[in-house]
Amino acid sequence: MALLRFGADAMPSAIESSEGYWASVWRRLRRDKVAMIAGAVVLALILMAVFAPYIVPADPFSGRMLRRLRPIGTEGYPLGSDELGRDMLSRLIYGARMSLLMGVTPVIIAFGLGSTLGIVAGYLGGWFNTIAMRTIDIFYAFPSVLLAVALSGALGAGLTNALVSLSVVFIPPIARVAESVTTQVRNRDYVEAARASGAPGFTIVRVHVLGNVLGPIFVYATSLISVSMILASGLSFLGLGVRPPEPEWGLMLNTLRTAIYTQPWVAALPGAMIFITSISFNLLSDGLRSAMDVKQ
């Protein structure tokens, strides 16, 4: 559809152009030191996950039984070795892949499905809204940890089941936020004005609603990544997520639990990784929220 393209090509060059919304958000975010550090940590973790095979010092899957549970700083094992004699550093680096995947994917899925559901319900209103939101209330009646454990417990252990369960956990809160933001925007005069111009509903949603609701929903979704990281690794910790020998921080924490008397600090390492990841996402999300929370 060639309709409604407000690209730079449609704008004669003599026109003074103002800073767009996202440009101003970025400008404010850049000045937030805490958020920038958190963002750098997140970026580093992502790079670590992507390039894991190229940066690990040793094979994270093969271990030597004779060199089990070595302490931190052992020659050849900078962060010690695990209960099967595998290099902890390499496993922690590799673990970023599965842990980030498990933590971030459910939020992305829930963002897609939840915001679609919430925006449609909010824009249409009426009986569709009532049915959708009452159904969501039912899922709200379960504390998130319980719902995640119940679903993946019933579905059985495994990566896919864990991702499905976590996505189901995060759809209701995102849909609720999306619905309430959309309901607010729908009643703004500029949406009325767009309706008065005779634009079809789909065009109004695309041009006038999405631009104003996706930001707040997105910020909310980013605040869930931290929770999702903890929950996802928690499922693995319970044995409901990925299966051994896959390096995943939650699962590693589980298998090392027996080692807390012999090599306590090695055993605590995977949890520290979860904590660093979770707190970085949290601080980044906080920074993003305050950078976007400007009356415009």
Partner: peptide
């Protein structure tokens, strides 16, 4: 709100 509480317990 950021700490994995099962790890904190450990």
């Amino acid at each position: 709100v950021s700490v994995p509480h099962y790890w904190l317990g450990m």
